[in-house]
Amino acid sequence: MKVLGWLLLVILATSIILIAVYWQADKSLEELKPKWAPAPSQFVNVQGMQVHLRDEGPRDDPNPIVLIHGTSSSLHTWDGWTDELKSTRRVVRFDIPAFGLTGPSPDNNYTIESYASFIVAMLDHLNIEQGVLAGNSLGGYVAWATAVIYPERVSQLALVDTSGYPFTPKSTPIGFIVANTPVLNKLMEKVLPRSMVESSIINLYGDPSIITHELVDRYFDLTVRAGNRQALAQRFRQTKPGPYADKISSIPQPTLIIWGGQDRLIPPELGDHFHREIPDSELVIFDELGHLPHEEAPLETVNVFIDFINR
């Protein structure tokens, strides 16, 4: 009992020290806007949220490109792709619910069906009848689930290190582990070392040497946007891979699958699985890249995407 008492005391003292040293209050939307939402950012009211949106390129594009980011990311992850595409194509990207400057959903619903419904609501708001959906990780899951549930709204798919099948990670970012662990995720609502965010990004890159201070700042700032830490825990609880996986083989849209050969979160074998299941698909693996190949090597990966949509 004495040992147990001392152990509890040590845990309590450690927790107090962590809270004192790494306390991180939420940052308000207004506080974050000047740095992370300059022009051409705008905010549109969709499903009761002020959605952070960038809509660039020619408005007469009959088949706009919609880029969907993954967990704990934001529309900024597609900056490199957008720079190459927007001169000739309409490129739409936005922060999906629970992340970025959009923040939490008012109904706290983060099921895959809810995300697919959100994508269609955004297309409706922007008067887009049909478009090319490209998504990374959770964003890829949202993209192909939208194609399954609302096939008439999707002309082509690009899936980048995509979730959706059950999988076993080779390595999971520490931030994801904490957000997915009861008690710890409650602590994370108030305590968030910047080093944890940086470590999580390092885990996702094939070449961590190219990670910049500004990149870590962006992920850190948008993680502590008011409400996002609570929403992240709910997203992990509600959006599990598996639902609709039996429908993947029925996807009729031409599909490009891009994967980083060094992805330790969703192993490249999953890319092979998607390729085998989707009838009209092609798979391109970048051996040296990690879980975010579009962010890590935007020019190399977008060129493959441009070839695909042009065909």
Rank of each mutant, 00 (worst) to 15 (best):
S137P: 14
V148Y: 02
G139L: 03
K170D: 13
N180G: 14
L187K: 02
Q130G: 00
K170Q: 13
G135F: 10
L159R: 08
V191F: 00
G100A: 07
Q156F: 02
G164T: 01
Y165C: 09
E113V: 15
S117T: 14
I112T: 01
T162L: 06
D124I: 00
N136R: 12
M122H: 09
A158Y: 03
S171K: 10
V132A: 04
N180H: 02
A143M: 06
A158W: 03
A134D: 05
V142S: 14
A179D: 08
T181L: 01
F167N: 07
N136G: 12
T146I: 01
E129I: 02
Y165N: 08
W144V: 00
K190C: 01
F167L: 10
N108K: 15
F99D: 15
Y110K: 05
S137N: 15
H125S: 05
Y110M: 10
G100K: 11
S117I: 00
P151W: 11
A134C: 02
Y165I: 14
N185Y: 02
S137M: 14
A134Q: 07
A145P: 04
N127I: 06
E113F: 06
Y165H: 12
N109I: 12
F176H: 12
P173V: 07
S114P: 04
F167P: 07
N185R: 14
G131Y: 04
A145Q: 12
G135A: 09
N108M: 13
I112M: 11
S171Q: 13
R153N: 07
V142T: 15
A116S: 14
V148C: 08
F167C: 09
V178T: 08
S137Q: 12
D107W: 01
V178K: 09
I119K: 07
K190R: 13
P151S: 07
W144P: 02
V120N: 09
N108F: 12
V148Q: 11
A121H: 08
Q130V: 13
S114G: 13
L138Q: 15
G100F: 05
P182G: 00
P173S: 06
S137E: 13
I149M: 10
V191P: 10
G135W: 11
E129C: 03
H125C: 02
I119L: 14
T111K: 01
Y165F: 15
N136K: 11
N180R: 05
Q156I: 00
T162H: 03
V132Y: 00
V191T: 03
Y141E: 08
L138S: 13
Y115C: 06
R153A: 03
G164N: 08
T172M: 11
I174A: 09
W144R: 10
K190I: 07
G140I: 04
T168A: 14
E129G: 06
G131W: 03
S114H: 11
P106A: 00
P173K: 05
I174F: 01
I174D: 01
Y115A: 09
T111D: 00
V154D: 06
E113R: 11
Q156P: 00
L123V: 11
A147D: 13
T168M: 10
L138M: 15
S163L: 15
